[in-house]
Design a protein around this nucleic acid. Structure first.
Lengths: 293, 293
DNA sequence: TAATTCCATACCTCTAAGGTATCAATACTT
DNA sequence: AAGTATTGATACCTTAGAGGTATGGAATTA
């Protein structure tokens, strides 16, 4: 007995007509007749009566039809689920991250993940917060490491860490005895900021910080990633205010990271994902990505 | 995909060793390897990892194993049940009956049954009450039409009808004006009875009847079926006392059936069967056999 | 280090699935 | 009532695919 026999039986049971059933099965009628007879012989059970050119199910045949239907249904469901399991563990995980993310740590986490899910493929997208939010909502990203706050009812958000701001100036201008002197310097300097487009609330924070220090920033350059901003500061084009976590990753640049005192303004780095995304690898990633904790 | 693929997968999943699994399946290892690969290709899912000569199930494979086990279990159960349905409707019904049963009516019932269960085969056994009880208990009979009482905890018993006794005498001696004269005749006559072996309580009843009439019967002949007894009476070898229902079937014989007055002694004809016998045809027979009702 | 064992692949044989032709019996149409 | 059409079953034929042996590459075991 093979699934072919069961499928042939099921189709004849539905049609109660061998030639029509054969047509549905894309075979001719004689092999169908033989295969049904073979099934009946193997079971030792008459499934159909053939009476005067009419076919009917016997009681045994009626029962068997319901069972065969259930078996096919379960097999199809199993095939679907097995494919889902396979894909969630061997498909793709699309990860967005902001440029300030410490990529060495991210790489370590991904290496550990491949031990658990050897067949997974990860796609990394260094894109800004606003693009990540859009991508997560549209399903083109599975998870994002981005700056909060994130206002989206579709997304689950959990805080990784609070990231205080620091002033970044060229290395040769790195020492100030008082916050007042620092403020005076900043007031007199051109500023290099992130583009407003890519970090909706980020600029507001920076302007708030400057206001607290008693001046309005003179933003003469914009860039769309942290590395570019830091390089411009190093080159002497201006100063900036960036998250402290960047020091961890770009400490080798000839710039100074100056902590701000008396300025309780932070930024929040968060992990965001869609609640209904059930990929096993995603769950693992969320449970195991702890930067800042 | 065929059941063969699922069986091969299931066996490899159990053995985690292709050569051992192949041996269990009575095939060699290369076709097994190919069939598993074919299944994985069709599903688009890796079910096993092959790592350094070791085979392990993937998560998808583990899930699929439980599903395939359930599918095989349901298929086996379905095959069993379909065979039971087939057999209960197309197997055999073994019917025991006592010789006094009106066979024409029994035949009518069996003809009607074949309309409902066209594939059923009936085996009829004209055997005495004691043999029927034994056969029902041992399962060599499905149902019996026999004389009560039946004392067996294994058997379900239902009364068909009460069968009063009649005196049977040769036709030329058939008219008696009084029971006294009849008694006198019987006292002077030889008796032909059923063998004691075949009807345990029957003889007791007859002796009770004779005692009520004031004499002890002179039993000079024994026979094991009603027809023989009636023929011996017709031939003039003696008289007998038999159930009234026999008149219905043997009225053509040249004997007289004389009803006994003032003798409240009956025999009971019953239907008996095992309670746990679930054959559909048996149920139909019990519901539809109404002789005497 | 050599022998053994594992699963995968190449190549071969032959069984059985599916084809066409046709039959007997019945239903349907004229 | 006769002719035609249709049904499922069976005979005979072709070839796809299941299972065989031989062998390879890689790892384990002795």
């Amino acid at each position: 007995m093979e699934l072919r026999h069961l499928l042939y039986f099921k189709t004849v049971a539905e049609q109660l007509h061998f030639r029509k059933a054969a047509s549905r099965l894309f075979i001719s009628q004689p092999p169908l007749s033989r295969q049904i007879k073979e099934l009946e012989n193997e079971l030792g059970v008459l499934l159909f009566t053939r009476k005067e050119r009419r076919v009917a199910l016997t009681d045994a045949g009626k029962y068997f039809k319901t069972e065969v239907d259930a078996i096919f249904a379960r097999l199809e469901e199993s095939k679907n689920i097995v494919q889902q399991i396979h894909n969630s563990e061997s498909g793709e995980l699309k990860i967005g991250y902001i440029s300030s993310v410490y990529q060495s740590y991210l790489a370590d986490v991904l290496i550990a993940m491949r031990d658990v899910y050897p067949y997974i493929k990860t796609n990394l997208f260094e894109i800004p917060t606003s693009a990540q939010i859009k991508g997560l909502e549209q399903g083109t990203l599975d998870v994002g490491i981005l700056r909060g706050p994130v206002h989206s009812s579709q997304l689950k958000v959990q805080t990784l860490f609070l990231d205080p701001f620091v002033v970044v100036v060229p290395a040769n201008k790195g020492k100030y005895k008082t916050q007042e002197k620092l403020a005076a310097l900043l007031k007199a300097s051109p500023f290099i900021f992130f583009s407003r487009d890519i970090a909706p609330h980020y600029n507001d924070k920076l302007i708030e910080i400057c206001a607290r220090m008693g001046f309005k920033p003179d933003i003469v350059h914009e860039a769309n990633n942290a590395h570019s901003i830091l390089q411009l500061v190093e080159a002497g084009l201006g100063v900036s205010i960036l998250p402290y976590s960047l020091k961890q990753q770009y400490g080798y640049l000839k710039v100074s990271f100056i902590e701000l005192k008396d300025t309780p303004v932070n930024t929040e780095v968060v992990l965001a994902y869609k609640q209904n995304n059930k990929k096993a690898a995603l769950k693992w990633f969320i449970d195991n990505y702890h930067q800042g904790k």
